[in-house]
Design a protein around this nucleic acid. Structure first.
Length: 556
RNA sequence: GUCCCCGUAGCUCAGUGGAUAGAGCAACCGCCUCCUAAGCGGUAGGUCGCAGGUUCAACUCCCGCCGGGGACACCA
């Protein structure tokens, strides 16, 4: 029995028991669509608990405990159940047969790589867009959060069976690009940077790089010279972003250029499509999309009165382009400063004839604050006090940076304390989790050295009856449920939190359950069983860390 | 003004409408002559911002306040 079906099977059994009671006429009511089934925090409350009797009591006109009693014997008849207790106001606490639970080790070890994956999003094609920074500067802290979380979410969605395309939208068009080109040009010529231009030190570095590569660039005609600078610097900057993201374990399937969108005539195409849907109108010389038809605060301009296209035009065309590429769901991960996009993007989808509640999803991420030396580091592009992805990695390493950023739900502002992350002690949860993995690796090295037989043919589940073993098995069983929930709610932090719990449970097991023979003790089936349990735990830790893009070290 | 997010232990934060609200850090007390002590066990620490409502049951859902952060464009 795999673990996902363990809870599913129980829920189904409870449904069946309710159905039988109704059939017999003992119970009045209907079977709830979903059966509340949870793993109680308190171990005294069994392996699983359900409050379904409390729910059914009122419509049935019975006391919750009486309802629970109706279901008790049916549940007790299940082979995997060892006891069913009614507790408190009417909770049903179910304890599973231990050796039956221990079969989970076989499940994990027989399909090690895929344990935890599922099919809850099977066949759904998802476009996951994140970061999408302008190619006019280095990636900063906000981008870094998205890099970690977006990448991990991609992994989680894939694990749930979705067909995921990770996409980076390059805003390589418009005034900002021109300003960028002029800024680099000015730096190269030793002239003052334009008023609204880009100020950071990296601009002069870019200028040096560009001049080095194109020695004659300064001699070009002054009127259009900035364009050459723009193009050359763009290439350098984009390549740098791509390189940095690679080192951060963040992979994109598609780097989508805004220019290519325009070159392909996507805006006109989108306008045509939107016109047929009847939400485009002309006013004051401009062309508008009536997004207010679908909950936006105001209508949006697509083509300005002077004929220029707005950014909204690009965004709209891009959305339609994504849908025409066959994506069922378009997920946008945006910063808090973009929350005004939510309504207009949803409205755009509706204008295009899509379902804004299904085809488009917008995840808004809150800001990251940085503490260093006990003080908040104020971030300002102007003052040049931005922290880049590269700097963060330099300070704390890829694993700690990724883990810390993923560990929190994105809709809460978070504080990163650089000093703590740099200390590399167990104050940082990533080490706690990685240590558990490395510790098991050490145990398994000793297992191999001592010649303890391991593997499915040397596994006797009935050996595992200790409370700690049972607790560990129960936690391992949760992994697929956690992954599925992380995918459903788009919340990879659930995986990180789970791993911390699993690591803690393992450490507890390790303290109380000796794996290796002690002294002259003979090797027994218990040693093999525990070694296999260790191997299964190691696998789940590794699978979980993989979903976060964090390494699982063999030694620390 | 309108909208979004947040308010839980000293700090940083988890918490599917369920039982005695949790973890890490910080504080205090214990545990290595044999598996990695980057670990384990224990103690202490709470008006879940405030006030109503829905419910058998509210930290969780709804309404209103208070406090903190952020966003509004024919900018990019």
């Amino acid at each position: 029995m795999s673990s996902l079906t363990q809870s599913q099977a129980l829920a189904a059994a409870i449904s069946a028991a309710i159905g039988a009671a109704i059939e017999r006429g003992d119970l009045v009511g209907t079977i709830p669509v979903t059966i509340p089934l949870e793993r109680p925090k308190n171990r005294d409350h069994g392996d699983y608990a359900t409050s379904v009797a409390l729910q059914l009591a009122k419509p049935a006109g019975m006391s919750p405990r009486a309802v629970a009693e109706l279901l008790q014997s049916d549940l007790l008849d299940l082979p995997e159940v060892s006891s069913v207790e009614i507790a408190g106001p009417g909770f049903i606490n179910i304890t599973l047969n231990r050796s039956n639970q221990a079969e989970l080790v076989s499940t994990i070890l027989s399909s090690p790589e895929t344990y935890g994956t599922g099919n809850s999003l099977s066949g759904i094609s998802i476009n996951l867009e994140f970061i999408s920074a302008n190619p006019t500067g280095p990636l900063h802290l906000g981008h870094t959060r998205w890099a970690a979380v977006g990448d991990s979410l991609g992994r989680v969605l894939s694990a749930a069976g979705a067909l995921v395309t990770r996409e980076f939208y390059i805003n390589d068009r418009g005034n900002q690009m021109d300003l960028f080109g002029k800024s680099v040009e000015a730096a190269a010529l030793g002239q003052p940077i334009p008023e609204d231009g880009y100020q950071g030190d990296y601009i002069s570095d870019l200028a040096d790089a560009v001049v080095k590569e194109n020695p004659k660039i300064k001699e070009l005609a002054a009127e259009t010279r900035y364009e050459s600078f723009r193009e050359a610097a763009y290439k350098v900057q984009l390549a740098e972003q791509q390189g940095v993201l690679e080192t951060f374990n963040t992979h994109f399937d598609v780097w989508f250029s805004e220019r290519s969108l325009h070159e392909a005539g996507a805006v006109e195409h989108a306008l045509t499509k939107l016109r047929t849907q009847g939400h485009v109108f002309d006013s004051e010389g401009a062309i508008w999309l009536r997004t207010t038809d679908f909950g936006d605060d105001k209508d949006r301009v697509i083509t300005k009165a002077n004929g220029d296209l707005t950014y909204f035009a690009s965004d709209t065309a891009y959305y339609i382009n994504k849908r025409e590429r066959g994506f069922d769901i378009c997920i946008y991960m945006l910063g808090a400063d973009h929350h005004g996009y939510v309504n207009r993007l949803r409205a755009t989808a509706a204008c295009a004839g899509d379902n804004p509640d299904y085809n488009v999803e917008i995840l808004i991420g809150q800001l990251v604050k940085i503490m260093e030396g006990g003080e908040e580091v104020k971030l300002s592009k102007r003052a040049g006090t931005i922290i880049t992805l590269e700097e963060l990695v330099e300070k704390v390493g890829v694993d700690a940076a990724r883990y810390t950023l993923i560990r929190y739900p994105v809709d809460t502002p978070m504080v990163m304390d650089i000093d703590i992350l740099r200390r590399n002690t167990n104050e940082n949860p990533v080490y706690y989790v990685q240590y558990a993995h490395a510790r098991i690796a050490a145990v398994l090295r000793n297992v191999a050295e001592l010649g303890i037989p391991i593997g499915l043919s040397n596994f006797d589940p009935s050996q595992l009856s200790h409370d700690r073993e049972n607790e560990l098995l129960g936690t391992l069983a949760e992994f697929p449920v956690v992954v599925a929930a992380a995918a459903t709610f788009r919340e990879p932090h659930r995986v990180a939190r789970y791993l911390e719990e699993l690591a803690g449970v393992y450490h507890g097991f390790y303290a109380d359950c000796r794996v290796l023979p002690l002294g002259e003790e003979a090797i027994s089936p218990l040693h093999s069983a525990r070694a296999n349990l260790c191997a299964a735990t190691k696998q789940v830790l590794a699978n979980g860390l993989e979903l976060l893009g964090v390494s699982a070290p063999e030694r620390m």
